[in-house]
Design a protein around this nucleic acid. Sequence first.
DNA 1: TTTCCTATTGACTATATAGTCGAATTGACT
DNA 2: AGTCAATTCGACTATATAGTCAATAGGAAA
Lengths: 214, 214
Amino acid sequence: MAKIDAARRAEIGREKRARTRAQILEAGTMLLAEKPPEALTVDAIVEAAGVAKGTFYYHFQNIEELAAAVGSKLGESFDDLLTAARLELPDPIARLSFAFTQFLEKATSDPAWARLVLQSAQAPTEFARGIRAHLKADLTEAIDQGRLSVRDVELAADIVLGIWLQVVRGSLERRTVSDLSDLALGAVLRALGASQPRMEIVSDRVGRSSRTTT
Amino acid sequence: MAKIDAARRAEIGREKRARTRAQILEAGTMLLAEKPPEALTVDAIVEAAGVAKGTFYYHFQNIEELAAAVGSKLGESFDDLLTAARLELPDPIARLSFAFTQFLEKATSDPAWARLVLQSAQAPTEFARGIRAHLKADLTEAIDQGRLSVRDVELAADIVLGIWLQVVRGSLERRTVSDLSDLALGAVLRALGASQPRMEIVSDRVGRSSRTTT
DNA sequence: TTTCCTATTGACTATATAGTCGAATTGACT
DNA sequence: AGTCAATTCGACTATATAGTCAATAGGAAA
């Protein structure tokens, strides 16, 4: 009868709810960067988030669901690093090189993010499969153009991902060289047997500077 | 007074003790291939080993100590794959290539071993550091000989390990190509910018056949 | 102020896990 | 057969963790 409406009520708490959920998500993100989900406890999460235990279960069914939400957020952060320039690069090898470099520089500048990515790369989650699918699309296109001496797309993806992941691990454990991105990318392209893309394009967009191209 | 002697007594139970310990070690090995040590429970271990809980604590202080023992055993399995031929190869690149191929073929023929190695590669355990140290020794020698275009030994090690680990992951998740070892090794050598080692030596010893060289 | 829905709390029960310890078993030796 | 030390067993305590739920707080609308 009254205008008191479920939709309105739901809207009321939304901001508070969203804030609390974000706290839990952030705590989960931090903890999942340190240890695998199987080793994570609800008590640890709620303590880190500064909320009561019941609150966790009000927002998530279980830890698995939280981990999925963290994975999803991580996937978005990957997209964010690409969306601006990805479509402007018609060359698959240039695209791949750009992505490789972007991700690597993000990893060296944000160790917590890097740790989370490494943990997430362990199990083939939705997030990990998405990344690999994108990569394979670029690689397939390059192979179809006869640009790679590696013909098997799965092997090619393993090469790119393998070098990337291990270089990121190295950057967390050791002091990182200044031109790590260029060196690692060079290794990847040699490994793939990539015929040179037009380097001026790649280095224009991929170079260490973050200015947008004109 | 009697000849009953502690040393003798200790010897008596040794065989039984060794057998039980081996059971626990094997169960731990199997479980550590599936999940990280933080997610492992003593109850799961003793159930898998078919022994009582107290027995576990009679042989190991805690799970960490078991994990260390498993890691040590794993390290030995690596050595076993090399000791025969390693010293006969004076060329560091040939040595590295031989090891890479041996390990990769072991991984494809023994998935449980592969899974364990991948899990162990997560944390920089004693085992992982030993492998990396050996690898770096070969790489340093090759770099000193001016044989690699990659000059940074840490980056070079990351490239080799990264490709190896990811190719092994791939071999567990997908059907594996017949000449995976050769293709992956080729990618590694290109990535390192290795000037060709004398290929007849490498392929003699590294080829798919497991016959011992004459 | 009062109402009333949403979000939050933390105590509570269940179960799982770590780690201990006295009793039982084993097997070589006498 | 008996002895005895080493080994194994499993019940037991204590703690940790998962998951539930009735009570409370908060704040917008009446």
